[in-house]
């Protein structure tokens, strides 16, 4: 479904991604793990068209993405839930959700149906619909960010550090939500520093170091690898 071939991304003279290749099959949850600065978020930004690609190719369902602008990539059904949530804090929860549906030309009925589906998954958002997004708690904001991504009815959902900055009880709630979304056969790319949970959930995973893929394999297999256990799990 998604194929990244020898991707290179530079920030000026800094080579953030140095020839990474990844594959994501339909219906899979693929995790990308790695330490700070490994280039995990940059890969997602490159897929979404938010950073220019210096080399390599990104293909999605037979179409080359790396030459398209961000707003065109979304129309292909790729939703990106960025690190830090990137909510519109002065807009209400409902307005944020409406913006999530921007790239889809829903009819009124379709929009209401998608909104209802999303609100069923995140009931708190219905209660907070008229509240400014900036006034929500961290956990609620993260739910809103994921819900906004789901408003697109994406074919590929990319989540960047969804558990970042949340208290432990909220972190498990977020992973429970991701597990629910996964059961809907949605294709997901998950970038997380929470390696244990991330790999437990993943069908397949890539480990990134300084812009290169240094390890890959099924999530449960990687969890047994010494390198992962020592570097990320402190074992």
């Amino acid at each position: 479904m998604l194929s990244i071939i020898d991707l290179r991304v530079n920030y000026g003279k800094v080579r953030a991604i140095q020839g990474a290749s990844l594959r994501v099959e339909a219906g899979q949850l693929v995790s990308i793990v790695g330490s700070n600065g490994a280039g995990k978020s940059t890969i997602l930004q490159a897929i979404s068209g938010l950073v220019p690609v210096s080399g390599g190719e990104i293909w999605f369902d037979g179409e080359r993405l790396d030459r398209l602008p961000a707003h065109e990539i979304v129309r292909r059904g790729i939703a990106h839930v960025p690190e830090g949530r990137a909510l519109f804090g002065r807009l209400t929860v409902l307005e944020n959700l409406e913006l999530g549906a921007y790239a889809r030309q829903y009819t009124r009925r379709e929009f209401d149906r998608v909104l209802e589906e999303v609100c069923t998954m995140f009931p708190i958002l219905k209660k907070r619909a008229r509240q400014k997004a900036g006034t929500l708690s961290g956990g609620e904001q993260q739910m809103l960010a994921i819900a906004r991504g789901l408003m697109l009815r994406p074919r590929l959902l990319m989540l960047d550090e969804p558990s970042l900055g949340l208290m432990p009880s909220r972190v498990s709630q977020i992973f429970e939500t991701l597990s629910q979304i996964k059961r809907r056969d949605l294709t997901i790319v998950l970038v997380e520093q929470n390696v244990q949970e991330s790999l437990e959930l993943a069908d397949y995973a890539y480990v990134l170091q300084t812009g290169r893929v240094v390890l890959e394999g099924p999530g449960d297999v990687l969890l047994q690898q010494d390198m992962i256990r020592q570097a990320y799990l402190g074992m």
Binding site: A70, H71, V74, P82, A86, L87, E95, E98, Y102
Partner: peptide, 22 residues
């Protein structure tokens, strides 16, 4: 709708682009 797009661009144009807003 136009007003929401303006406000979204004002708050975070990258996030707006990532949602498909040109």
């Amino acid at each position: 709708k136009l007003g929401y797009y303006f406000k979204a661009i004002k708050e975070d144009w990258e996030a707006a682009e990532a949602l498909g807003v040109n």
